[in-house]
Computed example of a mutant assay.
Amino acid sequence: MPAAPDQLADLPYAHLLQPHAGPLRPDESYDTAHFDGLAFEGRANGASFLECALTGVELQQTKLRQARFNEVWVHGARWVAVELAESDWQDSAVLASVFAGISGYGAALRRVVFRQCKLEAVNLRGALLREVVFEDCLLRDVDFGGAKLTDVSVPGSTLEEVRLNGATLKNVDLRGAVRLGLPDGPQGLRGATIGTGQLFELAPQFAQALGITVKDS
C-alpha cells in the first residue's frame, strides 16, 4: 500500500515548499510549490507538478489535460468539472477531497492513495490504475469502462453505480468495500476478489447474467 502522510509536515519535501501565487499556466513546471487556499479556472493543459502540496485548492472548470502529478499531496480540495484526461499521477496522495464531474479518461495512476474522498460522476474510461488505494471513500457514478486495474483495493469504501464493463482487472481486492453497487452486475469482475457476503448480495445479478431463474416454490 503506498504511503500517504496525513499531515503536511510529514512530507519528505515539506521543508522545501514555497508558497505559490498567481494563475496556473499551460505547460508550466511547478516544483516544490505549495498551493494553499487558492481557486483556479481556465486552461493549464500539460502543466507539471513535482513534489507539490495542494491544500484547500478549488478548481472549477479547469483544463488540466495531459498534466503530470508526481509526488503530489492534495488535502481538502474541491475539484468540479475539471478535465484530467490523459493526465499522469505517480506516488501521490489525495486526502479529504471532493472530485465531481471529472473527465479523466485515459489517465494513468500509479501508486496513488485516495483517503476519505468523494468521487462523483468521474469518467475514468480507458484509464490505467496500478497500486491504487481508495480508502474510506465514496465512489458514486464512477466509470472504469475499458480501464486496466492492477493491485487496486477499496478498504472501507462505498461503491455506488460503479461501472466496470469492459475493464481488465488483476489483483483487484473488493473485499473491504462497505457496499458494492455495480449496475452492470458481474460484468467486468473477472480478476477481482470479493467476500462471501458480497457474493450473496450479487447472486441475483449473477443469476440474471446466466439466465437462471431462482424459485423456492
Rank of each mutant, 00 (worst) to 15 (best):
R115A: 01
L124S: 05
A81W: 15
D27I: 13
F114K: 02
E58M: 13
A147I: 02
H75E: 07
S92I: 03
L174P: 04
F200K: 09
P2S: 07
Q205I: 03
R115G: 00
L50R: 14
V162L: 01
R78G: 00
T158P: 05
D143R: 13
D6Q: 15
G211I: 06
L17K: 07
V98L: 07
A44K: 04
L180R: 01
F40H: 11
L202A: 01
A127Q: 10
N45E: 12
L139V: 12
A121M: 14
E41L: 11
A81H: 15
R130V: 04
A177M: 03
V74A: 08
L189Y: 11
R110K: 09
L59H: 07
V98H: 11
V82H: 12
L182R: 14
R110G: 09
N123K: 10
G101Y: 00
E131R: 15
T150Q: 09
A96Y: 11
R111P: 02
D6P: 10
R111N: 14
L124H: 04
G191Q: 07
D27W: 15
G156D: 14
A177H: 08
L210C: 06
V72P: 00
V112D: 00
F200G: 06
P12L: 13
I102Q: 11
N171G: 02
A4E: 15
F40M: 05
V162N: 05
A21W: 02
W73I: 04
E161H: 07
A21K: 05
L182A: 12
K170I: 04
Y13C: 09
A81V: 14
Y13N: 05
Q18M: 08
G76T: 11
A107D: 04
D6H: 15
A127P: 06
K118P: 00
I102K: 03
K215Y: 00
A14S: 15
Q7S: 08
P23N: 13
A14M: 01
V142E: 10
V72Q: 06
P155M: 14
A127W: 05
F144Q: 08
Q7H: 14
E28W: 10
G188E: 09
L11I: 14
P204N: 09
F200D: 07
L174K: 12
R179K: 11
G101D: 10
A96P: 01
N165K: 12
G37T: 03
L139H: 13
I212W: 09
S153T: 14
Y30I: 08
A121L: 15
R115L: 05
L182H: 11
I194P: 03
L8W: 02
N70H: 08
D141L: 03
G197W: 04
D173M: 06
N123T: 08
R179D: 05
G101H: 06
G104T: 08
Q61I: 05
L8I: 07
F69P: 11
V122P: 01
V98T: 12
E120P: 00
